Computed example of a mutant assay.
Amino acid sequence: MSAAGPPVLREASWRDIPAMLEVERAAFPDEPWDEASLWAELAARPRRGYVVADRPGEPGLVGYAGLDLADDVADVMTIAVHPQARGVGLGARLLDRLHHLARDAGATSIMLEVRSGNTVATRLYTTRGYHLVRTRERYYRSGEDALVLRKELDT
């Protein structure tokens, strides 16, 4: 992946699923979502909102993110950034876009779960105003705990 130009964020489409799957497998090699899961997520629209990050004129995607838009509390379903595209603020851009989608859908707060050992993601979330609600012990197949985080959205 080249460093040419910043990625463009746009709404995900069915055609993006193969590239989303590539990002998923690269970002989460131990427990990636499968193709059926991605299809199910996009099929759940309009309750689900998904965005992808790509570089126009280049093949593939560099990241994507998804949100469940139920009632006044939205849930981040996933944020995936290709390892070769990390460290330049793409995860923050994707998270900020999810915040906008949640506000536009009428949510007043947003929640997510993150692996307890994922310090990079946890740091991103805390700098964006998330706070710990509780810990789900041994939540992941690997036995790792999940931190449940919440943020109140500005109106």
Rank of each mutant, 00 (worst) to 15 (best):
D104E: 15
D71Q: 09
D104G: 12
E24K: 10
A70V: 11
Y64K: 11
Y139S: 13
D145V: 00
D30S: 09
A107Q: 01
R115P: 09
E35T: 07
R134V: 11
T122P: 05
V62Q: 07
D68A: 08
G106Q: 10
P83L: 13
A146F: 12
V114I: 06
E41Y: 02
T135Q: 09
D34S: 14
D96Y: 15
V148A: 03
P46V: 04
V23R: 02
E31K: 07
V73G: 08
G66L: 00
R136P: 01
R141V: 14
T108V: 13
K151V: 15
A36T: 10
P59S: 01
G57E: 09
T135K: 04
A36D: 15
A85Y: 02
D68F: 10
H100F: 14
P32Q: 12
P46D: 07
R123Y: 11
V88K: 15
G129Y: 03
A27D: 03
S142K: 01
P56R: 05
V23M: 06
E24C: 14
V73Q: 13
V114A: 02
A44K: 07
E58L: 13
A92V: 14
L61N: 12
G57K: 05
A36G: 14
V133L: 10
E22M: 06
P32R: 10
A19F: 12
V76H: 03
T108A: 15
A102D: 06
L90F: 08
L98Q: 11
T122S: 13
R138P: 04
R138K: 06
V120S: 08
R134N: 11
G63K: 05
R128Q: 00
E58F: 08
L21M: 10
A43E: 02
A85Q: 08
K151E: 09
V81W: 01
L147S: 06
R45K: 05
A107K: 00
M77S: 07
M77T: 11
E41V: 11
G129T: 05
L21D: 10
H82G: 12
V52I: 04
A92H: 08
V114D: 07
V133D: 13
M20V: 04
V88F: 14
P29A: 06
P83R: 14
P46R: 05
I79Y: 00
S142P: 04
A74L: 09
L90G: 08
Y130I: 09
T78V: 13
A121E: 11
D71E: 10
M20R: 13
Y130D: 10
D68N: 14
E35S: 07
A70T: 13
E137W: 11
D30G: 13
P32H: 14
R97V: 04
R136N: 12
L98P: 00
G117D: 04
V23Y: 06
V52A: 05
R55L: 05
P59A: 04
R25D: 02
D104C: 06
H99D: 00
P56A: 03
W39F: 12
L98H: 12
V62T: 01
A92K: 09
G106P: 07
Y139A: 03
S37C: 15
G57T: 02
V133Y: 10
Y140E: 01
E22Y: 00
S142I: 02
R97K: 14
R123P: 03
